[in-house]
C-alpha cells in the first residue's frame, strides 16, 4: 500500500497514511491472526506426519493452484488500478478495472469448484486424511472470503458506475481494496503451504 501512497497525485498533509477506513484494519489484522492460527495448526499437524502429507499432496493440481494465484494477484492489481484511476478522476476506468477484478474473482471460484469436483470424483474427501481435512477446510474458509470480497467488489463496481469515486472520495474504495488485498495475501500463503511445501 506504500507504493500506492507514493504514486498519489494529490498532496496530503501527512507522509504516512493508512488507506481506507483506518478501523477496517482491525478486521484485517484479526483475519490475518485467524488464518495465522490455521497455518500454525497445519504446520503442527504436518510435522507429525510429513511423509503422509507429502504423499497426499501429490493428488492436488499444482497448475490449477498456480492459475488461481495468477487470477488473484492480477485482480489485486486491477483493484490498485481502480484506486489510482479514482485518484486521477477517471471514473470509467475505475468501473472497468473493478469489473475485471470481479471476473477474476469469479474465475477463481470456478477453478476451485473444478478442483473440488475432480478431487471428490477421484474419491478424496474432507475425511480422507489430515492433509485433506486441512486442504478442504482452509480452502473452503478462504473461498468464503473470496465470495465475500467479490460481493464487496461488485458493490464498489455499482458505486463506481454512478461516478461515486473520485479524487475527493476514495475512502470507501480503499477500504474494500484493502480487504481484497488481504484475501489475495491469504491465498499467497495458502498456495505454497498446501500445494508446494514438501
Amino acid at each position: 500500500m506504500d507504493g500506492l501512497s507514493a504514486n498519489m497525485t494529490t498532496p496530503r498533509a501527512t507522509d504516512i497514511r493508512i488507506p481506507g477506513d483506518k478501523d477496517v484494519w482491525v478486521l484485517i489484522g484479526a483475519e490475518l491472526l485467524t488464518f495465522g492460527m490455521f497455518f500454525v495448526a497445519f504446520i503442527g499437524y504436518r510435522a507429525l506426519e510429513v511423509a503422509h502429507f507429502n504423499a497426499s499432496q501429490t493428488a492436488l493440481h499444482r497448475n490449477l493452484g498456480l492459475l488461481n494465484t495468477l487470477f488473484l494477484v492480477t485482480s489485486s492489481w486491477c483493484v490498485v488500478q481502480a484506486v489510482r484511476a479514482a485518484r486521477e478522476d477517471r471514473p470509467a476506468s475505475v468501473a472497468r478495472s473493478l469489473g475485471i477484478a470481479i471476473l477474476l474473482g469469479i474465475s477463481f471460484m470456478v477453478v476451485k469448484a473444478l478442483e473440488y469436483t475432480e478431487l471428490v470424483s477421484s474419491g478424496v474427501g474432507m475425511t480422507t486424511d489430515n492433509f485433506f481435512m486441512f486442504y478442504y477446510c482452509l480452502t473452503i474458509i478462504h473461498l468464503l472470503h473470496v465470495v465475500g470480497g467479490t460481493v464487496i467488489l461488485t458493490v464498489m463496481w455499482a458505486n463506481a458506475r454512478t461516478g461515486r469515486y473520485h479524487s475527493g472520495n476514495t475512502k470507501g474504495l480503499e477500504t474494500g481494496a484493502s480487504y481484497w488485498h488481504m484475501v489475495d495475501l491469504l491465498w499467497i500463503f495458502l498456495f505454497p503451504l498446501l500445494y508446494l511445501v514438501r
Partner: peptide, 9 residues
C-alpha cells in the same frame, strides 16, 4: 468503528 469491524470478524 473498531468494535463494528471486530463484530464482523
Amino acid at each position: 468503528r473498531w468494535v463494528c469491524y471486530l463484530t464482523i470478524w
